[in-house]
Design a protein around this nucleic acid. Structure first.
Lengths: 224, 224
DNA sequence: CTTCAACAATCAGAATTCGCATACATCGTA
DNA sequence: TACGATGTATGCGAATTCTGATTGTTGAAG
């Protein structure tokens, strides 16, 4: 279960990171609001711990931007500002809990777990991840390294097929059957062409190549 | 929206009761754990504020009994015990938030609203928000940037469908099935035309476009 | 090491599909 | 009747996909 920390104080950030990792979470840290936002928009976090006073984009604006884009993960606000009005503002602008520094790590952990417990009801849709590639079947959105990719229908269908079977070799005839309606094997190279186009969309601009051909067999999607 | 208060200190109880009533909630009060439990088991509350130190049945045990019977309403614990360990225990035994007395009523209200906000996300009758669009299913009113939009029946139905599934791609056939009664796929372009009309009503006059087409798949409503 | 055949990748133009806008027809209602 | 809402028909333009030809790669045989 992944948690995002957005905190510019590096000591606090690493303290939180270690503690949450020990508690069994997978943790990402960002030291400013802008990076935090792009992470939160692209990675599937279960929750976030966000400081208010951040360089660039402040924490509350960050949360508002998340909510605007329907990122509904629970957010625990962490702040040095302890006045009641600050706390109220934090909660009203989209935070789910508010803790004042200095804080007890164990209480923070308990509060995060309380938030997660509540959220677990609505288990979110399974997002497919392969390496730096991410595909959300519901929104039909594909990103690589956080950048959005625009894929035409057939390319998208093929990519989804490959991602659902990542690591396994998919034969051309299998692709033909599943993406096209062909149940016979006509003399066509549509699949070759499709794979080529998908490569241009997905692999071309990037260093590591994810789509591999297995000569005589078919294709695999594999992160290496 | 109904809220339950379980608090043996009558001054605090009535203070809370008044404040929450002023905030628009319908409030029930019980002065001991046993009554509180039976109320919570029989009435449909949206949330509860529960003191820990109670005559008869203590607050934490009360919460556990509720959870045991699948009463999953959000619970805010109110307590004089302020040690970190007390707070952690309260959260771990099923509380969703923990406030120490003396407390600020406005902060308590904000915290309750944060809890309700989270729980209500998927409630049916609640107001739908996507970006600067707002739709109230009960009054059938739609606004964008606060301005009221007049939508014909079909356009309204489509918008509600899209808003209830914002971020998800809805196929044309799905629209055909859910807005029209067609279960087959006749040769018609009603959906295209309807979407076009809805765009004219909803997106045309505004800078940011909310209705996006996903070629070959359908349409999404997304704030961007 | 070279050659060759099978296979794969790529390219460009053609063909097709798709979505959009517009105009028109129909229907019910004030 | 006049009007608004809604379904149908049509054509345009662009995005997408296919076809067929060409080029590139691989690995085994000679």
């Amino acid at each position: 279960m992944r948690i995002l920390i957005v905190e510019d104080d590096k000591k606090i950030a690493s303290f939180l990171e270690k503690g949450l990792q020990e508690a069994g979470f997978s943790v990402d840290v960002s030291y400013n609001g802008v990076d935090g936002l792009s992470l939160a928009l692209t990675e599937p976090y279960a929750a976030a711990v966000i400081d208010i006073m951040l360089p660039g984009l402040d924490g509350l604006s960050l949360i508002e931007k998340l909510r605007l884009r329907n990122i509904d993960i629970p957010v625990l606000i962490l702040s040095a500002r302890q006045s009641v009005d600050d706390r109220i503002e934090g909660l009203q602008r989209g935070g789910d809990d508010y803790m004042v520094k200095p804080f007890s790590f164990n209480e923070l952990l308990a509060r995060i777990q309380a938030l997660l417990r509540r959220g677990q009801k609505h288990a979110d849709a399974s997002v497919l991840n392969v390496g730096e590639l991410q595909l959300n079947p519901l929104s039909r959105q594909v990103t690589r390294q956080g950048e959005k990719l625009e894929l035409p229908a057939k390319e998208y269908a093929l990519l989804e097929l490959l991602m659902r079977n990542s690591g396994r070799v998919i034969s051309k005839t299998s692709i033909l059957e599943r993406i096209y309606e062909y149940n016979f094997d006509p003399q066509t190279n549509v699949v070759d062409v499709l794979v080529c186009r998908l490569r241009n969309s997905v692999d071309k601009e990037y260093e590591s190549k994810l789509i591999h051909t297995v000569r005589g067999m078919g294709y695999v999607l594999r992160a290496e």
